Simulated scan of single mutants.
Amino acid sequence: MEYNIIIAPDLEGLASEVASFLPQGWRLKGSILEHGEGYAQQLVRNTKDKFRVQQQQQQNRKPTKQRRTRWIE
């Protein structure tokens, strides 16, 4: 189990930082905490979630289609 704490000076900054971690398999744990320097949110991720996200990303990658080009003289 992995834990991560995101700290930001305002709620908008916190939301954008947390949003960048969600596609990587992280989940929210608890509520938003307010402290002297701003706001904080704790995230949790199981190791199996990490590997599942990596497998899904590999499956979603489609081979790029090679385009033919012809030179005009």
Rank of each mutant, 00 (worst) to 15 (best):
K62P: 11
L22Y: 01
I32R: 02
L11E: 13
S20W: 06
A15D: 15
T64I: 09
Y39V: 03
Y39N: 06
N46W: 06
G13E: 12
E17H: 12
L43I: 00
E2A: 07
Q42T: 13
R61G: 01
Q57M: 10
N46P: 10
A15N: 15
K29L: 04
G13V: 12
R27C: 07
R68C: 09
I6P: 14
Q57F: 08
P63S: 03
L28W: 03
G38F: 03
Y39S: 04
Y3L: 06
D10A: 01
K29M: 05
I5T: 15
T47M: 05
P23Y: 08
G25W: 06
Q57S: 11
Q59V: 08
T47K: 10
Q56W: 01
W71N: 14
R45D: 08
R67P: 01
A15T: 14
E17A: 14
L43W: 00
M1F: 07
Y3V: 01
E2S: 08
L28T: 04
Q24A: 11
L33N: 02
S31A: 09
G13A: 07
K50T: 12
N4Y: 12
A15K: 15
Q24D: 15
F51V: 05
I5L: 15
I32V: 14
E37Q: 09
F21C: 12
R67C: 00
E37P: 01
T69K: 09
G13Q: 11
F21L: 14
F51P: 03
D49A: 05
G25N: 08
W71G: 07
L33Q: 03
W71S: 09
Q41L: 00
N60M: 11
A40W: 05
V18T: 04
N4P: 10
E12P: 07
Q42V: 10
G30R: 08
D49N: 04
